[in-house]
Design a protein around this nucleic acid. Structure first.
Lengths: 198, 198
DNA sequence: CAAGTACCCGAACGAACGTTTGGTAACTGT
DNA sequence: ACAGTTACCAAACGTTCGTTCGGGTACTTG
């Protein structure tokens, strides 16, 4: 092993390398199911046992990885939205960024949606990272309404429909690679936005 | 084992029992990933080796099971459609039957959509069992148009949108059980139909 | 320089898996 | 009765997995 050992306060650095290695593996594998402790250890170049210094078990690694990637997704969507012009453009930018992330990172996406992305919150209302995405879309629809382009259904429902549509389209592409060109996802969500806005 | 051996011409009977056992297992497991040769053998009450008389390997078993279940889905959708009245009712009945099947059979559904349900056909047009479902929905929209309730987008696109929406909603319910009540799927697709029809 | 400690690993355990091999028992046609 | 065929299985092989245990190595501190 050409690996250099971390210094005293830098034990946390291996944690980052483990997450990065797992992330790399996730790009090659289809999803979290194929992600093994031993595989991650091989990818990072460490012993399987070393992973247990930073994650108590496989589930904890998957949870940590999911949270890590949700951070990336939020950032990508935020940047995309800021770069757009009017309200409709910002809404489109949000959902396009979401789809692009999902299309380019099938393994990450599958892990994220399948791993506690939506929990049952207070009053049985769903909460979680994915619901934050829906909330962002709802704000987008509300801004559109203020600029004169109302949605055919209440903003909340429009946001859910757009999100569910995007998720469904992406999921179909992932489970049937080669079914269509990835760009078809973008035009699908564009159609959906057109349908939702009056 | 109290298992009685099949008679001469009845070797094919075990094939059916294997598929039935695998189907039962699929209801308990989340999807095809957890379906093992040994597990199926245990469920049916036979030796693992006996499965290889009817399926050359694990992949073949999964393929056979997927085809078997697509037959069931088609039948359920056909019956539901026949029992409905006007064109809109028949369209709704189709998609409701689809969702009900998916909600009640999470394991089967995941296996079906993830296992060659859409293949690249001639001219890069997607074909496969799932596309048959879309075709059925398109006919439904066309019938609605003939009865005076046209869709806001061409029937082909409306069918795709409805299908993708239903798939997305079901997939979300499956990856996050307890997120909402299963009945929410039905009302979601109803909303979607209302949005699509003028 | 000695003690302490943060960091990491080699080796092993037990369990599960897909698949192959070499059968045995039951039944049928002659 | 006997050969041939069908239907099924016990046992094993080799692999991979998650996880644990008992250290060892190199750095910091006193």
């Amino acid at each position: 092993m050409g690996r250099v050992r971390n210094r005293w306060g830098e034990g946390e650095r291996l944690r980052g390398e483990i997450l990065a290695g797992a992330s790399r593996l996730l790009s090659e594998l289809g999803g979290g199911d194929g992600l093994t402790i031993r595989g991650v250890a091989r990818a990072v170049g460490i012993a399987p046992a070393s992973i247990y210094q930073h994650f108590v078990d496989r589930e904890a690694l998957l949870r940590g990885l999911s949270e890590h990637e949700f951070g990336r997704l939020r950032e990508v969507m935020r940047v995309a939205e800021e770069g757009a012009g009017d309200a409709v453009g910002r809404l489109r930018a949000q959902v396009h960024a979401y789809c692009a992330f999902a299309v380019e990172n099938p393994g990450h996406y599958r892990l994220m949606v399948g791993h506690g992305a939506v929990r049952s919150g207070a009053g049985s209302a769903p909460v979680g990272p994915l619901m934050d995405v829906v909330a962002g879309l709802r704000v987008g629809f509300e801004r559109c309404a203020e600029e004169g382009r109302a949605s055919r259904v209440p903003a909340e429902r429009a946001a859910v429909m757009l999100f569910v549509g995007a998720h469904g389209r992406v999921a179909l592409l992932h489970s049937n690679p080669g079914e269509t060109r990835p760009e078809a996802v973008g035009s699908f969500v564009d159609e959906l936005v057109d349908l939702l806005l009056v």
